Amino acid sequence: MSTMIKMVRVLSAVATLAVAAPALAAGSGPHVERQSWSFAGPFGTYDKAQLQRGFKIYKEVCSSCHSLRLVKFRNLGEEGGLGYSEEQVKAIAAEYTVEDGPNDDGDMFERPAVAADAFPSPFPNEKAARASNGGAYPPDFSLLAKARAAHRGFPWFVFDAFTQYQELGPDYIYGLLTGYEEAPEGVEVPDGQYYNPHFMNGHFIGMAPPLSDELVEYEDGTAMTTEQYAKDVSAFMMWAAEPHLEARKKIGFRVMVFLVFFAGLLYFTKKKLWKNVAH
């Protein structure tokens, strides 16, 4: 009985750590508060309305500094995406211009974007981007939701495998976007920097607070608050980093069902074949 009690206590401690783990970052990183996402868990799916709102935030607020170079306009209308029709995708693409060429004269030229084009960068090169942002280089949004989840190490990734926790990136981005605050007394913020304790590379960040209440108009009645904006654009960034998440989870579930069924067949086959064999 005492052995059983000890095992229960150990399992309870492991479960407690697994629940607490998402709120912790490896090493000396920032505190990451776990949020609720529609795409969380083994059966999670993207909320298309939220993705469209997040795209609106990106287009009207973030795209002036941050690129989305690995996402093509046609991806917006693909299955598991934002739910746009082919005509809507074409209309969105037509709002942008891209550089093409060379033409017959050997010159580069600009033309309206089409669905097959990737989102154009707001700057021609990295030096131009840094010059426009006080020396800071705005990261590309394409994979950021995954890249910002890479710093979790042992033992947290073990718990993540059992809890299916894969949302550290969106959690971190949400915390960063909503985490700007006045610096504590005695802390001097460098010129051109802002205080944000959620920033993983220290408490000072070169990006000014990008969101504020009622900054972008929502037409579906969703609350127009900084927190809602942050959550919507974080979800959109997760989709940009993993547009086939829903398909992956469906395939994974089918594979698990097949493996369980196959393991059962192997077990009963073994029992049948060895039934009359002495051991």
Rank of each mutant, 00 (worst) to 15 (best):
A278R: 09
L144H: 03
R111A: 00
V255F: 15
P124H: 02
A40V: 12
G192A: 07
L259Q: 08
E185P: 09
A91T: 01
A235P: 01
A23G: 15
G77T: 08
Y165R: 07
H203Q: 06
K59T: 06
E33P: 03
T163L: 15
A13G: 14
G192R: 03
G83C: 07
Y180A: 07
D171P: 07
G135D: 08
I205S: 05
Y96D: 04
E33I: 05
F204R: 07
F43H: 08
R9H: 10
I5K: 12
H198Y: 14
H198R: 13
A235I: 01
P170W: 06
K275Y: 12
E182T: 13
F39L: 10
A23E: 11
A93F: 03
F39A: 13
N201F: 11
A147N: 04
Y137K: 09
S212I: 02
A150K: 15
K275Q: 13
K90E: 04
G179A: 09
D171W: 09
F199N: 12
G169I: 01
R34W: 04
E110Y: 11
K270H: 13
E79K: 15
L68F: 02
D105L: 03
D47V: 12
A129M: 02
L177N: 04
G29F: 09
K72R: 04
D220C: 01
E185Y: 09
G169E: 09
A241C: 03
N75M: 14
I57M: 03
A25C: 14
D117I: 05
P22R: 10
L177W: 03
A94E: 00
C62L: 11
G153E: 15
G175R: 03
V10Q: 00
N201T: 07
L24P: 00
E78Q: 15
L273P: 03
G264P: 08
A230V: 04
F73T: 06
A94T: 00
F262S: 15
M4H: 13
G101A: 01
A241T: 06
G41W: 08
P209Y: 07
A131I: 02
Y46W: 03
I205T: 06
V216P: 00
A263E: 06
G83Y: 04
Q88F: 07
M207H: 05
E185C: 10
K59Q: 09
P112D: 05
E86V: 07
K231H: 13
K72P: 00
M207L: 06
S85Q: 06
A128Y: 02
R130G: 00
K90Q: 09
F73G: 12
Y195D: 10
A183S: 14
A136I: 01
V98F: 00
L76A: 05
I92D: 02
H279R: 12
A23Y: 15
D105M: 00
G80H: 13
S67Y: 04
F253I: 12
F157D: 08
Y84V: 00
L265Y: 11
W37E: 11
P112V: 00
N103Q: 06
K272G: 04
T269W: 14
L24F: 02
F154N: 12
K271A: 14
G29A: 13
S36N: 13
L143C: 14
E86H: 01
G54R: 01
A93K: 04
P184F: 10
K250L: 14
Y267R: 05
A115I: 02
